[in-house]
């Protein structure tokens, strides 16, 4: 049986349904947290290797690159599995996924390039990495309408600018700037996204 609709009810249905579909795409924050901690830890290890005069300390990023490739492959596999379990495909999810792939490929190529050319030892390369992070954070934050990630992008752009302007004066401290930007740009927004995701999941179960 079909219900008769008033015009106001029609408008309400359209609004409600569009909002329900819009909220389908959510970020669990886990990827940001894991990736963020990995980058922070490697940055700090690199800092101490320089501090204690270990030669070829920049090579630690090559090791990180290998782990990164394994992690990305795992991420792509998981996303495909999850996607086949999902009952809906959104334009946002599809676009963000593709941009994410492009970001990680660019990041890994850039890290391999920096490790082989020795650019990690000059420090300026971390400015370029922060630019790349900011680009991805900003797009992701905008797509998911999640402002903390956009603020994280601003922090990373500022960090990149600081490194480009003062990388000689900063020396090994570029690694601290890099780690701080990752904490503020990835880890903190990641935990905030995780909290929001859990709250939404709980409200769905209870509601």
């Amino acid at each position: 049986m079909e219900n008769k609709l008033t015009n106001t009810e029609s408008l309400k249905i359209i609004e409600q349904m569009i909002n329900r579909a819009k909220n389908e795409e959510r970020d669990s924050g886990k990827g940001w947290i894991m990736w963020g901690w990995m980058l922070t830890i490697v940055s700090i290890i690199h800092y101490f290797l320089i501090l204690y005069g270990v030669k070829g300390s920049g090579n630690i990023w090559s090791v990180f690159g290998v782990f990164g490739i394994v992690l990305i492959a795992h991420g792509i596999y998981k996303r495909r599995t999850r996607s086949s379990e999902r009952t809906v495909k959104t334009y946002t999810g599809e676009l963000v996924g593709k941009i994410g792939d492009a970001f990680f490929i660019s990041l890994i190529v850039s890290m391999v390039g920096a490790a082989t050319t020795g650019a990690f030892n000059s420090g300026v390369n971390f400015g370029y990495l922060l630019l790349l992070y900011a680009f991805w954070l900003y797009i992701h934050g905008a797509a998911f309408r999640f402002d903390p990630m956009k603020y994280g992008a601003y922090v990373n752009w500022l960090g990149a600018l600081a490194i480009f302007l003062w990388y000689r004066e900063l020396g090994k401290n570029v690694l601290i700037v890099h780690a701080l930007c990752v904490i503020l740009g990835y880890i903190i927004p990641g935990y905030m996204a995780q909290r929001k995701f859990d709250q939404q999941a709980n409200s769905k179960v209870n509601g």
Binding site: E2, E9, I13, T87, T90
Partner: peptide, 28 residues
């Protein structure tokens, strides 16, 4: 479109690339 369920379905589908029957059933 001036029917509650058909309008709801079209409004859901306009926001996504594709949806399964179970998704539409749950949301409507």
């Amino acid at each position: 479109l001036h029917s509650q369920l058909r309008l709801a379905v079209i409004s859901l589908l306009v926001s996504v690339r594709e949806a399964e029957f179970t998704f539409l059933k749950e949301k409507t």
